[in-house]
Simulated scan of single mutants.
Amino acid sequence: MTPWLDFLAQHGAQFSTETVPQLLSFSRGNAAETARTNFIAPLTHLGLIAATGDEAAHFLHNQLTNDVEHLDPAQARLAGYCSPKGRLLASLLIWKNADGILLQIPREIQPTVQKRLQMFILRTKAKLADVSDEHVMLGLAGPAAASALMPWFPELPLAIYDKIDTDAGTLIRHPNAFDMPRYQWITSPATAMQAWPQLSAVLQPAAPDAWQLADIEGGVPQITAATQEQFVPQMINFELIGGVNFKKGCYPGQEIVARSQYLGKLKRRMMHAHVETDNIVAGAEIFSADDPGQPCGMVVNAARANAQSFDCLVEIKLAAADGDVRLGSADGPPLSFQPLPYPLTDPAA
């Protein structure tokens, strides 16, 4: 394990025994309920790619679904990386730093996505590097988070995806969840270790699933290994949360993404659901009782809500969403749909 993970283990973190350890909890056994407010979560499931060089922004602009060339240094931005068929290979959070552009991506798909991007650099003056272990990413949520951050960030980013840089690192405002503000702090391992005792005295230490549950509540999807190449961006509401720019130039799959936006009516969308079950994973199929022979959608992301249930984001046929929808099969656990924090508008309307 890295020095940062060793440090967390010394402060009560429990890790899996896998080759790549997963942070499970900060107590022995699972907590009865996943933290929703006033928590601090090491985002050990995420990695970082650094894109540097004179033409790095231009290169990424031609690869991703969002505008990279005009990325404001005071903002972060969602972006997707699509296959030529317009299906998402990755969902990213991107921002500029003093050296170039950082791309945040789940660690499990980072190597393959980075390798694929690297194939297209050719003679472009750009370089990609895995800088995950050079940084620590912390997710902080709740009304106590702002005061806890003040020693390092006297001013906080106010608008969603605004960011502030200080000597202590980068702070990005994330969409609210459970009516609570959220921030992500990207810093060095040394700074994180120094700050942890003070932060954890105010905020409850939590595993990454607390942050993932908050993302689900906020309607923010993330592509993982199980869901690569399954969705056109609009199928998981990616354009509704700022992940697609329809005025920029071409990128892989752009024609299909644009066609989905401007021709016809969208028949599939992403919705938030709650389900009583012992386990659920991204990529699991969901079924409508009205048409039990074939799936009507797929789980995009899931996070444990408590010992008996999960919250999830599911991509689903809109025609099936008003009926009896179940996990795994037509007689599986029923899904209870919850409101999203944004309206499901139709681009053709």
Rank of each mutant, 00 (worst) to 15 (best):
A90R: 07
L213Q: 00
Q204L: 14
P233Y: 08
A289T: 13
V232C: 05
I49G: 03
A305K: 02
P339A: 07
L71A: 12
L149I: 07
P197K: 11
T19N: 13
E134W: 12
C250S: 14
P292F: 04
A159S: 12
R77T: 11
D311K: 00
Q104G: 09
L89Y: 13
I241P: 01
V325L: 07
Y342Q: 14
A74E: 11
D67T: 10
G328A: 04
P189I: 07
G328S: 07
D290E: 13
P106W: 09
A41E: 01
I94R: 00
P3D: 03
P334S: 09
D99T: 14
P341Y: 12
Y183E: 03
I109V: 06
E255C: 05
P252D: 11
H58N: 15
F337T: 01
I256S: 02
Q75I: 06
V202S: 13
V325Y: 05
W196M: 09
T65E: 00
K267M: 02
T277W: 04
A9I: 03
M1Y: 10
Q14V: 15
I186A: 11
P111R: 08
Q118G: 15
F15E: 04
F337E: 02
A51G: 06
P175E: 06
P151H: 03
I223A: 01
F7V: 08
A284K: 04
L122V: 08
D133H: 12
G243F: 09
R36W: 10
L46H: 04
A35G: 15
I186R: 14
L88P: 08
F120H: 13
A307C: 10
P21A: 11
G328T: 04
R123D: 07
L46V: 10
D346I: 01
T52H: 13
T166C: 08
Q254S: 13
T37K: 09
A159K: 15
Q14T: 10
K96H: 02
A225M: 12
P233L: 05
L138V: 02
S16D: 11
R268Q: 12
D165Q: 14
R28I: 13
A9M: 01
W196S: 05
L199F: 04
A146H: 01
L203P: 00
K247Y: 03
M150Y: 14
N301A: 11
C250V: 08
G139E: 06
L117P: 02
Y342I: 12
K125I: 13
V220L: 05
M150K: 15
D6Y: 14
L60F: 05
A144W: 01
G328Q: 06
V136G: 09
L327S: 05
I241R: 05
K127Y: 11
P334D: 03
F15L: 15
P334M: 10
R116E: 10
N30E: 12
E239A: 14
G332C: 08
A31L: 10
F7D: 06
G12V: 01
A31V: 09
D67K: 08
H11N: 14
Q194V: 12
L93M: 14
C296W: 03
A31D: 01
R77N: 02
Q198D: 14
M137P: 04
G253K: 00
S83Q: 05
E217G: 05
D322S: 15
L117G: 01
G86M: 02
P343T: 06
F39C: 01
H272K: 15
R107P: 02
L149Q: 00
G29D: 13
L5H: 13
A273H: 10
